[in-house]
Design a binder for these strands. Structure first.
Lengths: 229, 229
DNA sequence: CGGTACCTTGACCACTTTCAATTTGCGTGG
DNA sequence: CCACGCAAATTGAAAGTGGTCAAGGTACCG
Protein backbone atom coordinates (compact mmCIF):
# COMPACT_ATOMS: atom_id res chain seq x y z
CA UNK A 1 0.00 0.00 0.00
CA UNK A 2 1.17 3.50 -0.72
CA UNK A 3 0.71 6.86 0.90
CA UNK A 4 -2.83 8.14 0.90
CA UNK A 5 -2.07 11.48 -0.63
CA UNK A 6 0.14 10.34 -3.44
CA UNK A 7 -1.76 7.75 -5.38
CA UNK A 8 -5.52 7.80 -5.92
CA UNK A 9 -7.30 4.67 -4.90
CA UNK A 10 -8.50 2.64 -7.78
CA UNK A 11 -11.03 -0.03 -7.22
CA UNK A 12 -12.36 -0.47 -10.68
CA UNK A 13 -10.52 -2.63 -13.16
CA UNK A 14 -10.16 -5.82 -11.20
CA UNK A 15 -13.32 -5.35 -9.22
CA UNK A 16 -15.62 -4.38 -12.01
CA UNK A 17 -17.81 -7.35 -12.77
CA UNK A 18 -16.43 -9.34 -15.66
CA UNK A 19 -19.15 -8.71 -18.20
CA UNK A 20 -21.59 -11.54 -17.88
CA UNK A 21 -24.77 -9.59 -17.46
CA UNK A 22 -27.45 -9.78 -20.08
CA UNK A 23 -28.67 -6.94 -22.18
CA UNK A 24 -31.38 -5.62 -19.94
CA UNK A 25 -33.41 -4.16 -22.76
CA UNK A 26 -34.29 -7.54 -24.19
CA UNK A 27 -34.65 -9.29 -20.86
CA UNK A 28 -36.90 -12.33 -20.70
CA UNK A 29 -37.27 -11.77 -17.00
CA UNK A 30 -38.55 -8.22 -17.50
CA UNK A 31 -41.04 -9.63 -19.94
CA UNK A 32 -42.28 -12.23 -17.47
CA UNK A 33 -42.66 -9.49 -14.86
CA UNK A 34 -44.57 -7.23 -17.19
CA UNK A 35 -46.91 -9.96 -18.35
CA UNK A 36 -47.48 -11.91 -15.17
CA UNK A 37 -46.49 -9.65 -12.29
CA UNK A 38 -48.77 -7.31 -10.35
CA UNK A 39 -47.89 -3.83 -9.18
CA UNK A 40 -47.81 -2.50 -5.65
CA UNK A 41 -46.64 0.58 -3.81
CA UNK A 42 -44.88 0.79 -0.45
CA UNK A 43 -44.58 3.97 1.64
CA UNK A 44 -41.18 5.22 2.84
CA UNK A 45 -39.56 3.35 5.76
CA UNK A 46 -42.04 0.44 5.53
CA UNK A 47 -40.67 -3.12 5.70
CA UNK A 48 -41.34 -5.06 2.50
CA UNK A 49 -40.16 -8.52 3.57
CA UNK A 50 -38.33 -9.78 6.66
CA UNK A 51 -35.33 -12.05 7.02
CA UNK A 52 -36.39 -15.67 7.38
CA UNK A 53 -39.89 -15.29 5.89
CA UNK A 54 -41.00 -17.83 3.32
CA UNK A 55 -40.73 -16.37 -0.17
CA UNK A 56 -44.11 -15.94 -1.81
CA UNK A 57 -43.23 -13.37 -4.42
CA UNK A 58 -40.10 -12.18 -6.16
CA UNK A 59 -39.94 -8.45 -6.72
CA UNK A 60 -38.71 -6.01 -9.28
CA UNK A 61 -38.15 -2.41 -8.25
CA UNK A 62 -39.88 0.05 -10.59
CA UNK A 63 -39.27 3.33 -8.75
CA UNK A 64 -37.67 4.42 -5.50
CA UNK A 65 -34.98 2.68 -3.44
CA UNK A 66 -35.01 -0.37 -1.18
CA UNK A 67 -32.41 -1.19 1.45
CA UNK A 68 -31.48 -4.86 1.76
CA UNK A 69 -30.10 -5.48 5.23
CA UNK A 70 -29.73 -7.70 8.27
CA UNK A 71 -29.71 -6.92 11.97
CA UNK A 72 -27.32 -8.44 14.47
CA UNK A 73 -28.45 -9.34 17.96
CA UNK A 74 -26.73 -6.32 19.44
CA UNK A 75 -28.80 -4.02 17.30
CA UNK A 76 -26.35 -3.27 14.56
CA UNK A 77 -27.72 -2.98 11.04
CA UNK A 78 -25.74 -3.95 7.96
CA UNK A 79 -27.09 -2.71 4.65
CA UNK A 80 -25.85 -4.91 1.82
CA UNK A 81 -27.28 -2.98 -1.04
CA UNK A 82 -29.63 -0.23 -2.12
CA UNK A 83 -31.85 -1.70 -4.84
CA UNK A 84 -33.21 0.83 -7.32
CA UNK A 85 -35.29 0.88 -10.50
CA UNK A 86 -34.75 -2.28 -12.56
CA UNK A 87 -33.20 -4.28 -9.70
CA UNK A 88 -34.57 -7.62 -8.60
CA UNK A 89 -35.20 -8.72 -5.03
CA UNK A 90 -35.03 -12.28 -3.78
CA UNK A 91 -33.48 -13.94 -6.78
CA UNK A 92 -30.69 -15.81 -5.15
CA UNK A 93 -32.73 -17.21 -2.27
CA UNK A 94 -34.51 -20.51 -2.67
CA UNK A 95 -37.20 -20.73 -0.03
CA UNK A 96 -36.68 -17.98 2.49
CA UNK A 97 -35.54 -14.37 2.44
CA UNK A 98 -31.98 -14.15 3.66
CA UNK A 99 -32.27 -10.40 4.22
CA UNK A 100 -34.83 -7.81 5.23
CA UNK A 101 -36.00 -5.36 2.56
CA UNK A 102 -37.25 -1.92 3.57
CA UNK A 103 -38.42 1.01 1.49
CA UNK A 104 -36.06 3.98 1.76
CA UNK A 105 -38.44 6.39 0.06
CA UNK A 106 -41.80 5.72 -1.61
CA UNK A 107 -41.27 2.57 -3.66
CA UNK A 108 -43.14 1.06 -6.60
CA UNK A 109 -42.70 -2.67 -7.12
CA UNK A 110 -43.84 -5.47 -9.37
CA UNK A 111 -44.42 -8.80 -7.66
CA UNK A 112 -44.19 -12.18 -9.35
CA UNK A 113 -45.56 -15.25 -7.57
CA UNK A 114 -42.98 -17.89 -6.86
CA UNK A 115 -44.64 -20.69 -8.79
CA UNK A 116 -44.79 -18.67 -11.97
CA UNK A 117 -41.08 -18.03 -11.81
CA UNK A 118 -40.34 -21.69 -11.13
CA UNK A 119 -42.40 -22.82 -14.09
CA UNK A 120 -40.61 -20.31 -16.28
CA UNK A 121 -37.22 -21.48 -15.07
CA UNK A 122 -38.06 -25.13 -15.71
CA UNK A 123 -39.08 -24.40 -19.27
CA UNK A 124 -36.87 -21.59 -20.45
CA UNK A 125 -33.09 -21.88 -20.75
CA UNK A 126 -32.70 -18.17 -21.56
CA UNK A 127 -34.45 -17.30 -18.33
CA UNK A 128 -32.16 -19.64 -16.43
CA UNK A 129 -29.13 -18.00 -17.94
CA UNK A 130 -30.40 -14.58 -17.03
CA UNK A 131 -30.98 -15.76 -13.51
CA UNK A 132 -27.39 -16.96 -13.25
CA UNK A 133 -26.19 -13.58 -14.49
CA UNK A 134 -28.20 -11.87 -11.77
CA UNK A 135 -26.61 -14.09 -9.12
CA UNK A 136 -23.16 -13.32 -10.48
CA UNK A 137 -23.84 -9.59 -10.39
CA UNK A 138 -25.20 -9.80 -6.86
CA UNK A 139 -22.04 -11.56 -5.75
CA UNK A 140 -19.84 -9.04 -7.56
CA UNK A 141 -21.68 -6.24 -5.79
CA UNK A 142 -20.90 -7.75 -2.36
CA UNK A 143 -17.28 -8.25 -3.31
CA UNK A 144 -16.86 -4.65 -4.36
CA UNK A 145 -18.35 -3.53 -1.07
CA UNK A 146 -16.11 -5.96 0.81
CA UNK A 147 -13.03 -4.50 -0.78
CA UNK A 148 -14.13 -0.95 0.02
CA UNK A 149 -14.61 -1.89 3.65
CA UNK A 150 -11.28 -3.64 3.82
CA UNK A 151 -8.94 -0.97 2.73
CA UNK A 152 -10.47 2.35 1.69
CA UNK A 153 -10.37 5.28 4.12
CA UNK A 154 -13.71 6.92 4.84
CA UNK A 155 -13.67 9.59 2.12
CA UNK A 156 -12.71 7.14 -0.60
CA UNK A 157 -15.38 4.76 0.57
CA UNK A 158 -18.00 7.45 0.27
CA UNK A 159 -16.63 8.51 -3.10
CA UNK A 160 -16.81 4.95 -4.38
CA UNK A 161 -20.38 4.69 -3.20
CA UNK A 162 -21.44 8.00 -4.74
CA UNK A 163 -19.79 7.08 -8.03
CA UNK A 164 -21.60 3.79 -8.13
CA UNK A 165 -25.03 5.14 -7.29
CA UNK A 166 -24.99 8.52 -9.04
CA UNK A 167 -26.20 7.29 -12.42
CA UNK A 168 -29.13 5.47 -10.89
CA UNK A 169 -30.54 8.38 -8.88
CA UNK A 170 -33.16 10.87 -10.00
CA UNK A 171 -31.41 14.02 -11.26
CA UNK A 172 -32.38 17.72 -11.32
CA UNK A 173 -30.20 20.38 -12.92
CA UNK A 174 -27.22 18.08 -12.88
CA UNK A 175 -27.58 17.19 -9.20
CA UNK A 176 -28.42 13.64 -8.16
CA UNK A 177 -30.74 13.32 -5.17
CA UNK A 178 -29.88 10.82 -2.44
CA UNK A 179 -33.02 9.32 -0.89
CA UNK A 180 -31.21 7.76 2.07
CA UNK A 181 -29.97 9.26 5.34
CA UNK A 182 -26.40 9.57 6.58
CA UNK A 183 -27.17 6.72 8.95
CA UNK A 184 -28.24 4.51 6.03
CA UNK A 185 -25.06 5.31 4.14
CA UNK A 186 -23.01 4.64 7.26
CA UNK A 187 -24.65 1.26 7.80
CA UNK A 188 -23.83 0.39 4.21
CA UNK A 189 -20.21 1.56 4.28
CA UNK A 190 -19.33 0.45 7.78
CA UNK A 191 -18.85 3.90 9.29
CA UNK A 192 -20.68 6.11 11.78
CA UNK A 193 -23.11 8.75 10.55
CA UNK A 194 -20.76 11.44 11.86
CA UNK A 195 -17.91 10.09 9.78
CA UNK A 196 -20.16 10.02 6.71
CA UNK A 197 -21.04 13.64 7.33
CA UNK A 198 -17.39 14.62 7.76
CA UNK A 199 -16.47 12.73 4.59
CA UNK A 200 -19.10 14.72 2.66
CA UNK A 201 -17.59 17.90 4.05
CA UNK A 202 -14.06 16.96 3.09
CA UNK A 203 -15.01 15.93 -0.44
CA UNK A 204 -16.95 19.14 -0.89
CA UNK A 205 -14.12 21.36 0.40
CA UNK A 206 -11.66 19.41 -1.75
CA UNK A 207 -13.76 20.17 -4.83
CA UNK A 208 -14.29 16.49 -5.55
CA UNK A 209 -18.06 16.82 -5.32
CA UNK A 210 -20.51 19.74 -5.41
CA UNK A 211 -23.55 19.83 -3.16
CA UNK A 212 -26.91 21.51 -3.12
CA UNK A 213 -28.43 21.04 0.31
CA UNK A 214 -27.47 17.86 2.08
CA UNK A 215 -29.01 15.37 -0.29
CA UNK A 216 -28.21 16.68 -3.76
CA UNK A 217 -24.72 16.15 -5.11
CA UNK A 218 -22.71 16.10 -8.29
CA UNK A 219 -19.35 14.45 -8.85
CA UNK A 220 -16.64 16.75 -10.20
CA UNK A 221 -15.59 16.04 -13.79
CA UNK A 222 -11.97 15.28 -12.95
CA UNK A 223 -13.07 12.97 -10.21
CA UNK A 224 -15.29 10.97 -12.45
CA UNK A 225 -12.34 10.25 -14.71
CA UNK A 226 -10.26 9.18 -11.71
CA UNK A 227 -12.86 6.69 -10.54
CA UNK A 228 -13.49 5.26 -13.99
CA UNK A 229 -9.77 4.80 -14.71
CA UNK B 1 -23.93 -0.31 19.86
CA UNK B 2 -22.80 -1.11 23.37
CA UNK B 3 -19.49 -1.09 25.17
CA UNK B 4 -16.96 -3.58 23.93
CA UNK B 5 -16.35 -5.23 27.25
CA UNK B 6 -19.90 -5.65 28.42
CA UNK B 7 -21.76 -7.58 25.83
CA UNK B 8 -20.24 -10.34 23.72
CA UNK B 9 -20.60 -9.85 19.98
CA UNK B 10 -23.05 -12.16 18.40
CA UNK B 11 -23.02 -12.53 14.69
CA UNK B 12 -24.83 -15.76 14.28
CA UNK B 13 -28.59 -15.96 14.32
CA UNK B 14 -29.42 -13.39 11.72
CA UNK B 15 -26.31 -14.00 9.73
CA UNK B 16 -26.34 -17.75 9.69
CA UNK B 17 -27.49 -18.86 6.27
CA UNK B 18 -31.18 -19.65 6.25
CA UNK B 19 -31.02 -23.36 5.59
CA UNK B 20 -31.27 -23.81 1.89
CA UNK B 21 -28.23 -25.94 1.29
CA UNK B 22 -28.64 -29.47 0.07
CA UNK B 23 -27.69 -32.57 1.92
CA UNK B 24 -24.11 -32.90 0.73
CA UNK B 25 -24.03 -36.65 1.18
CA UNK B 26 -26.48 -37.31 -1.61
CA UNK B 27 -25.25 -34.56 -3.89
CA UNK B 28 -25.84 -34.97 -7.61
CA UNK B 29 -23.02 -32.57 -8.25
CA UNK B 30 -20.55 -34.66 -6.27
CA UNK B 31 -21.66 -37.62 -8.32
CA UNK B 32 -21.06 -35.80 -11.60
CA UNK B 33 -17.60 -34.82 -10.38
CA UNK B 34 -16.74 -38.35 -9.33
CA UNK B 35 -17.92 -39.89 -12.58
CA UNK B 36 -16.83 -37.30 -15.11
CA UNK B 37 -14.18 -35.18 -13.45
CA UNK B 38 -10.43 -35.71 -13.58
CA UNK B 39 -8.02 -35.22 -10.70
CA UNK B 40 -5.07 -32.90 -10.47
CA UNK B 41 -2.66 -31.65 -7.85
CA UNK B 42 -1.33 -28.14 -7.34
CA UNK B 43 1.74 -27.24 -5.24
CA UNK B 44 1.53 -24.63 -2.49
CA UNK B 45 1.38 -20.96 -3.53
CA UNK B 46 0.72 -21.81 -7.19
CA UNK B 47 -2.02 -19.92 -9.05
CA UNK B 48 -4.82 -22.19 -10.19
CA UNK B 49 -6.86 -19.73 -12.30
CA UNK B 50 -6.62 -15.98 -12.79
CA UNK B 51 -9.27 -13.29 -12.72
CA UNK B 52 -10.73 -12.68 -16.18
CA UNK B 53 -9.65 -16.01 -17.72
CA UNK B 54 -12.22 -17.92 -19.74
CA UNK B 55 -13.64 -20.77 -17.68
CA UNK B 56 -12.69 -24.15 -19.09
CA UNK B 57 -13.21 -26.28 -16.03
CA UNK B 58 -15.12 -26.01 -12.79
CA UNK B 59 -13.30 -27.37 -9.76
CA UNK B 60 -14.04 -29.22 -6.59
CA UNK B 61 -11.48 -29.07 -3.78
CA UNK B 62 -10.57 -32.52 -2.51
CA UNK B 63 -7.75 -31.69 -0.09
CA UNK B 64 -5.91 -28.57 1.01
CA UNK B 65 -7.02 -24.96 0.91
CA UNK B 66 -7.45 -22.45 -1.90
CA UNK B 67 -7.63 -18.69 -1.49
CA UNK B 68 -10.11 -16.89 -3.75
CA UNK B 69 -9.02 -13.29 -4.14
CA UNK B 70 -8.68 -10.18 -6.25
CA UNK B 71 -5.92 -7.59 -6.50
CA UNK B 72 -6.51 -3.87 -6.72
CA UNK B 73 -4.33 -1.68 -8.90
CA UNK B 74 -2.44 -0.35 -5.92
CA UNK B 75 -1.34 -3.83 -4.98
CA UNK B 76 -3.81 -4.63 -2.24
CA UNK B 77 -5.12 -8.17 -2.08
CA UNK B 78 -8.62 -9.02 -0.87
CA UNK B 79 -9.23 -12.66 -0.04
CA UNK B 80 -12.93 -13.45 -0.28
CA UNK B 81 -12.82 -16.98 0.92
CA UNK B 82 -10.65 -19.95 1.76
CA UNK B 83 -12.10 -22.92 -0.11
CA UNK B 84 -11.43 -26.30 1.51
CA UNK B 85 -12.31 -29.96 0.96
CA UNK B 86 -15.77 -30.31 -0.59
CA UNK B 87 -16.00 -26.70 -1.77
CA UNK B 88 -16.66 -25.78 -5.38
CA UNK B 89 -14.79 -23.16 -7.40
CA UNK B 90 -16.26 -21.17 -10.26
CA UNK B 91 -19.90 -22.03 -9.84
CA UNK B 92 -21.41 -18.61 -9.89
CA UNK B 93 -19.46 -17.32 -12.86
CA UNK B 94 -20.81 -17.81 -16.36
CA UNK B 95 -17.94 -17.37 -18.79
CA UNK B 96 -14.98 -15.90 -16.96
CA UNK B 97 -13.41 -16.23 -13.53
CA UNK B 98 -14.29 -13.24 -11.44
CA UNK B 99 -11.56 -14.01 -8.93
CA UNK B 100 -8.07 -15.48 -8.81
CA UNK B 101 -7.66 -18.86 -7.11
CA UNK B 102 -4.32 -19.77 -5.54
CA UNK B 103 -3.25 -22.84 -3.60
CA UNK B 104 -2.48 -22.03 0.04
CA UNK B 105 -0.88 -25.41 0.74
CA UNK B 106 -0.63 -28.49 -1.48
CA UNK B 107 -4.06 -28.85 -3.03
CA UNK B 108 -5.85 -31.78 -4.67
CA UNK B 109 -8.65 -30.91 -7.07
CA UNK B 110 -11.17 -32.52 -9.37
CA UNK B 111 -11.84 -30.66 -12.60
CA UNK B 112 -15.06 -30.88 -14.60
CA UNK B 113 -15.12 -29.52 -18.16
CA UNK B 114 -17.56 -26.72 -18.70
CA UNK B 115 -19.63 -28.41 -21.38
CA UNK B 116 -20.29 -31.44 -19.23
CA UNK B 117 -21.67 -29.26 -16.48
CA UNK B 118 -23.83 -27.31 -18.91
CA UNK B 119 -25.30 -30.48 -20.36
CA UNK B 120 -26.04 -31.72 -16.87
CA UNK B 121 -27.72 -28.45 -15.93
CA UNK B 122 -29.89 -28.45 -19.04
CA UNK B 123 -31.13 -31.96 -18.33
CA UNK B 124 -31.29 -32.25 -14.57
CA UNK B 125 -33.55 -30.11 -12.39
CA UNK B 126 -32.02 -31.50 -9.17
CA UNK B 127 -28.60 -30.35 -10.34
CA UNK B 128 -29.99 -26.91 -11.10
CA UNK B 129 -31.45 -26.66 -7.67
CA UNK B 130 -28.20 -27.69 -6.08
CA UNK B 131 -26.42 -25.06 -8.12
CA UNK B 132 -28.78 -22.37 -6.85
CA UNK B 133 -28.14 -23.49 -3.29
CA UNK B 134 -24.39 -23.15 -3.86
CA UNK B 135 -24.88 -19.60 -5.15
CA UNK B 136 -26.99 -18.74 -2.12
CA UNK B 137 -24.35 -20.10 0.23
CA UNK B 138 -21.59 -18.22 -1.57
CA UNK B 139 -23.56 -15.01 -1.18
CA UNK B 140 -24.27 -15.71 2.48
CA UNK B 141 -20.56 -16.27 3.04
CA UNK B 142 -19.72 -12.82 1.61
CA UNK B 143 -22.42 -11.21 3.70
CA UNK B 144 -21.11 -12.74 6.91
CA UNK B 145 -17.65 -11.47 6.07
CA UNK B 146 -19.07 -8.05 5.22
CA UNK B 147 -20.70 -7.79 8.61
CA UNK B 148 -17.51 -8.83 10.38
CA UNK B 149 -15.58 -6.13 8.56
CA UNK B 150 -18.21 -3.51 9.27
CA UNK B 151 -18.44 -3.67 12.97
CA UNK B 152 -16.33 -6.26 14.74
CA UNK B 153 -13.09 -5.21 16.46
CA UNK B 154 -9.99 -7.14 15.47
CA UNK B 155 -10.12 -9.87 18.10
CA UNK B 156 -13.76 -10.66 17.48
CA UNK B 157 -13.13 -10.74 13.78
CA UNK B 158 -10.36 -13.27 14.23
CA UNK B 159 -12.50 -15.27 16.63
CA UNK B 160 -15.36 -15.36 14.12
CA UNK B 161 -12.98 -16.54 11.44
CA UNK B 162 -11.40 -19.23 13.61
CA UNK B 163 -14.82 -20.47 14.69
CA UNK B 164 -15.95 -20.74 11.12
CA UNK B 165 -12.91 -22.54 9.81
CA UNK B 166 -11.97 -24.73 12.77
CA UNK B 167 -14.19 -27.65 11.84
CA UNK B 168 -12.87 -27.80 8.32
CA UNK B 169 -9.17 -27.91 9.18
CA UNK B 170 -7.04 -31.02 9.66
CA UNK B 171 -6.80 -31.76 13.39
CA UNK B 172 -4.10 -33.39 15.55
CA UNK B 173 -4.58 -34.01 19.27
CA UNK B 174 -7.46 -31.58 19.38
CA UNK B 175 -5.53 -28.80 17.67
CA UNK B 176 -6.61 -27.55 14.25
CA UNK B 177 -3.79 -26.59 11.91
CA UNK B 178 -4.04 -23.33 9.94
CA UNK B 179 -2.40 -23.65 6.52
CA UNK B 180 -2.42 -19.91 5.81
CA UNK B 181 -0.10 -17.12 6.98
CA UNK B 182 -0.95 -14.11 9.16
CA UNK B 183 -0.83 -12.02 6.01
CA UNK B 184 -3.42 -14.26 4.34
CA UNK B 185 -5.71 -14.00 7.35
CA UNK B 186 -5.22 -10.24 7.42
CA UNK B 187 -6.10 -9.91 3.75
CA UNK B 188 -9.26 -11.88 4.42
CA UNK B 189 -10.32 -9.97 7.53
CA UNK B 190 -9.24 -6.50 6.44
CA UNK B 191 -6.50 -6.03 9.02
CA UNK B 192 -2.71 -5.85 8.98
CA UNK B 193 -0.65 -8.95 9.72
CA UNK B 194 0.59 -7.30 12.92
CA UNK B 195 -2.95 -6.78 14.14
CA UNK B 196 -3.74 -10.42 13.36
CA UNK B 197 -0.73 -11.45 15.38
CA UNK B 198 -1.71 -9.22 18.31
CA UNK B 199 -5.27 -10.56 18.16
CA UNK B 200 -3.94 -14.12 18.44
CA UNK B 201 -1.93 -13.04 21.44
CA UNK B 202 -4.86 -11.38 23.17
CA UNK B 203 -7.19 -14.32 22.57
CA UNK B 204 -4.54 -16.70 23.88
CA UNK B 205 -3.83 -14.65 27.01
CA UNK B 206 -7.58 -14.26 27.58
CA UNK B 207 -7.96 -18.04 27.54
CA UNK B 208 -10.36 -17.89 24.62
CA UNK B 209 -8.13 -20.05 22.46
CA UNK B 210 -5.21 -22.39 23.14
CA UNK B 211 -2.24 -22.52 20.81
CA UNK B 212 0.50 -24.98 19.95
CA UNK B 213 3.09 -23.16 17.89
CA UNK B 214 1.81 -20.39 15.70
CA UNK B 215 -0.38 -22.43 13.41
CA UNK B 216 -2.14 -24.91 15.68
CA UNK B 217 -5.06 -23.70 17.75
CA UNK B 218 -8.07 -24.87 19.69
CA UNK B 219 -11.11 -22.82 20.67
CA UNK B 220 -11.92 -22.85 24.40
CA UNK B 221 -15.09 -24.74 25.32
CA UNK B 222 -16.86 -21.73 26.83
CA UNK B 223 -16.00 -19.69 23.78
CA UNK B 224 -17.51 -22.16 21.40
CA UNK B 225 -20.82 -21.88 23.22
CA UNK B 226 -20.64 -18.09 23.05
CA UNK B 227 -20.13 -18.10 19.30
CA UNK B 228 -22.86 -20.62 18.62
CA UNK B 229 -25.41 -18.75 20.74
C1' DC C 1 -44.15 29.82 11.12
C1' DG C 2 -42.81 26.57 14.42
C1' DG C 3 -41.32 22.01 15.58
C1' DT C 4 -38.80 18.09 14.84
C1' DA C 5 -35.77 15.12 12.75
C1' DC C 6 -31.57 15.15 10.45
C1' DC C 7 -27.18 16.94 9.63
C1' DT C 8 -22.88 19.22 10.99
C1' DT C 9 -19.09 20.28 13.95
C1' DG C 10 -16.00 19.96 17.99
C1' DA C 11 -13.29 17.60 21.58
C1' DC C 12 -11.58 13.62 23.31
C1' DC C 13 -10.45 8.83 23.30
C1' DA C 14 -9.66 4.04 21.64
C1' DC C 15 -8.15 1.19 18.21
C1' DT C 16 -5.45 0.05 14.24
C1' DT C 17 -1.68 0.97 11.29
C1' DT C 18 3.04 1.69 10.31
C1' DC C 19 7.80 1.12 10.84
C1' DA C 20 11.33 -1.12 13.05
C1' DA C 21 13.57 -4.42 15.91
C1' DT C 22 13.68 -8.93 17.78
C1' DT C 23 12.41 -13.58 18.35
C1' DT C 24 10.63 -17.91 16.89
C1' DG C 25 10.13 -21.83 14.06
C1' DC C 26 11.47 -24.76 10.53
C1' DG C 27 13.96 -26.78 6.58
C1' DT C 28 18.53 -27.61 4.82
C1' DG C 29 23.13 -28.71 4.71
C1' DG C 30 27.25 -29.70 7.17
C1' DC D 1 22.15 -34.79 14.88
C1' DC D 2 23.08 -30.26 15.36
C1' DA D 3 23.82 -25.71 13.65
C1' DC D 4 22.77 -22.33 10.53
C1' DG D 5 19.93 -19.27 7.86
C1' DC D 6 15.79 -17.59 6.22
C1' DA D 7 11.07 -16.67 6.37
C1' DA D 8 7.40 -15.81 9.35
C1' DA D 9 5.65 -14.25 13.66
C1' DT D 10 5.85 -11.32 17.59
C1' DT D 11 6.51 -7.11 20.06
C1' DG D 12 7.26 -2.11 20.81
C1' DA D 13 6.62 2.85 20.03
C1' DA D 14 4.58 6.60 17.60
C1' DA D 15 1.14 8.49 14.75
C1' DG D 16 -3.22 8.61 12.34
C1' DT D 17 -7.97 7.53 11.67
C1' DG D 18 -12.44 6.80 12.99
C1' DG D 19 -15.77 6.34 16.99
C1' DT D 20 -18.33 8.38 20.75
C1' DC D 21 -20.55 11.92 23.16
C1' DA D 22 -22.32 16.37 23.15
C1' DA D 23 -23.69 20.75 21.40
C1' DG D 24 -25.38 23.59 17.86
C1' DG D 25 -27.34 24.35 13.09
C1' DT D 26 -30.37 23.46 9.07
C1' DA D 27 -33.97 21.86 6.32
C1' DC D 28 -38.25 20.21 5.63
C1' DC D 29 -43.16 19.28 6.78
C1' DG D 30 -47.31 20.24 8.66
Amino acid sequence: MQTTTQIPYKTSSHLAPVSQTQDRRSSRLDEVFRLQGHSLSVPAQRTIVSHGQAIENRYQVIAGFVRCCTFTEDGYRQIFRFAGPGDMLGYVDLERWHYTAEAVDKVALRALPNQILEIGLAEDAALRREMRAICAEELACRERQLTWLSYLPSEERLMAFLSEIEGRLPAQQGFAKLPMSRQDIGDHLGMSLETVSRAFGTLKRGGRIAMNGCSRFRIAAGERAAQAA
